[in-house]
């Protein structure tokens, strides 16, 4: 069984919107895009983030994250190839109600039908673990369907004061297990949780 592993950059107040850049997702008037980048100036954080991408068998992406990635990673610089190469070549499964195949980014396909069922079917296939990056709305839906096997949260020491969150305010109570936790030199936490079924 392939695991679904959710990778998120989160502020202490739980916001995951636009960690990487100002133009990434300004929806809702979010003005702090790129807040996360200063915390990546750390060897441990870099290895942690790159590790997930390198070890992934494939990626599960929401439509917004897909579009941001598809516009960026095919044109990434030479020194970004350690991330760009696996992202560009490994299979990407995209949750979208508006996009249809064929998608332009190499090896990308739209998940057909109900997201829960489609991801459950993917998990039963071969092909290594499925990593989710960003994709806040998709993550909410995966949590709701109990499809997440691991949360890898990099929690930055900053309160953004508003923005998109991965945890809904009307979900079920779900006990977890703290699998691992490390601290970076920039004061971020690298916390791994798994469901405690």
């Amino acid at each position: 069984m392939r695991k679904v592993i959710v990778n998120e950059f989160v502020s202490l107040d739980g916001v995951s919107q636009a960690p990487g850049g100002a133009d990434e997702d300004p929806s809702g008037g979010f003005g702090h895009g790129g807040w996360h980048m200063r915390y990546m100036e750390d060897e441990l954080a870099r290895r942690w983030a790159v590790g997930s991408i390198v070890e992934a068998g494939g990626f599960l992406l929401g439509r917004r994250t897909y579009e941001i990635f598809a516009a960026y990673w095919p044109h990434a610089s030479e020194e970004e190839q350690v991330i760009a190469q696996p992202l560009n070549t490994k299979p990407k499964h995209v949750a979208s109600t508006t996009r249809v195949d064929p998608l332009d980014w190499r090896n990308s396909t739209v998940l057909r039908g109900d997201v829960g069922e489609a991801v459950a079917a993917l998990k039963a296939d071969d092909g290594g673990d499925l990593h989710v990056i960003g994709s806040t709305e998709l993550v909410r839906s995966l949590i709701e369907h109990d499809l997440v096997d691991e949360f890898r949260l990099m929690i930055d020491p900053v309160m953004l004061g508003g923005g998109k969150r991965i945890f809904r305010e009307d979900g079920l109570l779900r006990p977890l297990r703290l699998v691992d936790c490390q601290t970076t030199s920039s004061g971020a936490l690298l916390a791994t949780y798994a469901p405690n079924a």
């Binding site: 020491p157 309160m159 953004l160 004061g161 945890f167 979900g171 079920l172 779900r174 004061g187 971020a188």
Partner: peptide, 23 residues
């Protein structure tokens, strides 16, 4: 605590500015 409670009052609300902290 290692749990997603899923509902209830949260500690953090909207603020007017970003607050940078030190762990």
């Amino acid at each position: 605590y290692p749990v997603i409670v899923g509902a209830g009052k949260r500690l953090f609300a909207d603020t007017t500015s970003v607050k940078t902290l030190r762990l």
